[in-house]
């Protein structure tokens, strides 16, 4: 469905390398995630694939169409939700939706099925201007507008950034339903916990792809044994573990520390070290890493 080959994009006369020789493919019907912090190159890739930005070099196709020569065909078959809210603030919910339907030569009624589940949640406020909506409602309206011409591919650039946990979960539920209707979805996010909700992901940093695979395979390729350390005074234990010579890496992770050890050191060695420092009530156990652990490890290796 999407094929990206050796795309390079620089800004400021080449001084800023936003996308650095990136290649990947997205299959039809797949929910594909670009995961990475600000500055990873996610938005540049979105803008190149949605034909809003020209790459310096490399090629890309969407639904078989070239992003440079056949941009018109691409624009007809994709929906794009940019990172910044970009609907008309002084039009109402209904007017915005109608506008986007008209631009694509269709009507709200014709494709209502696709947006119904989302639209019913904002329909009670359809006469309210978009500029007066809450973040969660803006997000739903933007998604409706991106869907109203029944696109085959949906590009969502950081749809959940700055959104609270409840709205984030709702949003991913909506994506799951859209995927079931056969849509190909490319979504970007800085939240590592959302990665596991994608079919495949590309972990990105500084214009590079660090790893690309299913979340399960990325986790399976984590070579080290990972331990979780829990203690009453986490910060003191963290400081102590960082100065332990057998520590390879140790960082805070929610309510515990995540720890990897050098060579063939074991939990017993750690326990001895910790006990010698008079820490009590410290619990250490082996755990399965998650995507954030993998990302941190990849960042350190690069």
């Amino acid at each position: 469905m999407i094929k990206v080959s050796n795309i390079v994009k620089t800004y400021n006369k080449g001084s800023v390398q936003a996308v650095n020789d990136i290649s990947f493919e997205v299959k039809r019907g797949e929910l594909f995630g670009l995961i990475g912090p600000d500055g990873a190159g996610k938005s540049s890739i979105f803008r190149i694939l949605t034909t809003l930005l020209l790459a310096d070099s490399g090629t890309a196709t969407v639904n078989g169409f070239d992003v440079v020569n056949q941009f018109q065909s691409i624009r007809n078959c994709i929906g794009y939700m940019p990172g910044r809210f970009s609907l008309y603030q002084d039009l109402t919910i209904e007017e915005n939706l109608e506008f986007f339907a008209t631009v694509f030569d269709t009507t709200i009624e014709e494709n209502y099925d696709l947006i119904r589940d989302i639209y019913v949640q904002i329909e009670p406020f359809k006469d309210r201007r978009a500029g007066k909506l809450s973040g969660g409602m803006k997000q739903k309206l933007a998604l409706c507008c991106a869907l109203i011409h029944k696109p085959e591919v949906l590009f969502l650039d950081e749809p959940t950034t700055g959104v609270d946990v409840v709205s984030r979960r709702e949003f991913w539920e909506m994506l799951k339903k859209l995927k079931q209707q056969g849509l190909t979805i490319v979504v970007s996010t800085p939240y590592m916990d959302e990665a596991s909700l994608c079919d495949r992901i590309a972990l990105m940093q500084g214009g590079h792809i660090l790893s690309i695979d299913t979340p399960q395979n990325i986790i399976a390729s984590y070579q080290k044994t990972l331990y979780a350390v829990a203690a009453p005074n986490m910060y003191k234990v963290l400081t102590a573990m960082r100065s332990y010579e057998q520590t390879e890496s140790c960082f805070a992770f929610g309510d515990c520390l995540h720890l990897t050890l050098k060579g063939d050191s074991t939990i017993d060695d750690v326990s001895k070290y910790i006990t010698a420092l008079n820490f009590t009530d410290v619990q250490i156990q082996e755990i399965v890493p998650d995507i954030e652990d993998c990302f941190i490890k990849l960042l350190k290796e690069n």
């Binding site: 912090p37 600000d38 700055g162 350190k300």
Partner: peptide
């Protein structure tokens, strides 16, 4: 929201400063 959009390693370094 001091750490929005920041990578996981830098986010933790930021929390070191907080501690």
């Amino acid at each position: 929201e001091p750490t929005g959009g920041v990578d996981p390693v830098t986010r933790r370094q930021f929390w070191d400063l907080i501690y």
